[in-house]
Design a protein around this nucleic acid. Structure first.
Lengths: 214, 214
DNA sequence: GTCTATATGCGGATAGAC
DNA sequence: GTCTATCCGCATATAGAC
């Protein structure tokens, strides 16, 4: 039953890391709850940090593949100027939240874990960044193409803001009072696209524009 | 030299909590680096968690006061419709970053600590939320007033997105390649205001609008 | 207020029997 | 592959001398 043991460890670790954080979760907590022996974590994974890495790789590869697939599709369907901002932002944000629905409660937990990892210390984030950075780079390039009048530094910053809004939502969306998760994703996409789209040098203050445009 | 001891503990704890996280920082780390005795933390503060609370209260009260003052000023200067979105967002975002400049490197560290706290586990966040929630509520009301056509749930979500972008920026802005911190704040304000301002029901996809408006 | 010494328990990791 | 038992160090917190 070795395979079951590995899977059980991964499932339980995912949930506990998500709910209580990586540092605050001990291998004893994980193995007790999974009903396996304490030593099995080091036997199967080598260390606590390697367990985290295995856990992230198990799900994250699929998410980033889907992100890139959706971006490819948007670029193929777009004209010579490339896809619109909202399409790019949606291709980036939708996959983790789609997966959350598809994978049920463990997808939910994984999402929270990923959200928390964004503000973990560098050492712990290292594994994560290796999985995330290549995908993020392609999206930054797509965003830059869609925003030819915005400088590279500014695009970089806005990408950080977008990632921050996403990470915070991943961490806490279970706690928001919301019945419709699809609507929340759509709100996030629109928020992010609108933020990205701001003209960089415009001196004019926008006064409650929602009032004028609906 | 009791007062000096307390201050030294607070200063060092602020820095270490910011850089390595609350859980990963031990009282031994703090007292060793501060050059004080291990037992002095419990003597002066009672516990590690109470130390965190004292640390947050020391700086956070001033930040929230300044936020509310700036909001008051904007409301006093505004017409009957209240201040514009960008003014509200700026009143919320500017004070922590202003303080960062005023308080030097310890302000920088404190900012990162606050950023990290946003994704800490509920237990640790409790103290922080008590300090943050009253201020946040007033801002939500101001935002709702500036966005009369957007439903309360939607305003709530957007406020979460804004907080997420802010927290992520607080945590990592030291690592961004940026010479001008004022420019970064201004970018964040514009990003947040534009995101908040999105018309909620508009079916039209925005296609690279920055290209059209500059 | 500050110190040393210590209580008490949990942490990750491993050795070696089965 | 799984188990028990254990190494060894660090954690928070406190008691009690100075």
């Amino acid at each position: 039953m070795a395979i079951d043991t590995k899977e059980r460890i991964l499932d339980v670790a995912e949930r506990l890391f998500a709910d209580f954080g990586y540092n605050a979760t001990s291998l004893r907590d994980i193995t007790r709850e999974a009903g396996v022996n304490l030593a099995s974590v080091n036997y199967h994974f080598g260390s606590k940090e390697a367990l985290l890495a295995a856990l992230l790789e198990r799900r994250f590869a699929g998410i980033n593949e889907r992100r890139l697939t959706q971006l490819d599709r948007a670029e193929a369907a777009a004209g010579p100027d490339g896809p619109g901002l909202e399409e790019i932002v949606r291709a980036f944000l939708a996959p983790p939240f789609e997966m959350r629905s598809e994978w049920g409660s463990s997808g939910q937990k994984f999402l929270r874990l990923v959200g928390r990892i964004h503000s973990e210390t560098d050492e712990i984030r290292q594994v994560f960044i290796q999985l995330f950075q290549p995908c993020l780079s392609r999206f930054k390039a797509a965003l830059q193409r869609a925003l030819p009048d915005v400088g590279p530094d500014e695009v970089e910053w806005r990408a950080h803001f977008l990632v921050g809004a996403m990470a915070h939502t991943m961490t806490w969306c279970d706690s928001f009072q919301s019945r419709d998760q699809d609507a929340m994703l759509e709100s996030l996409v629109r928020f992010g696209a609108a933020g990205m789209a701001t003209p960089s040098g415009s001196p004019v203050e926008v006064h409650a524009p929602a009032r004028l445009s609906r």
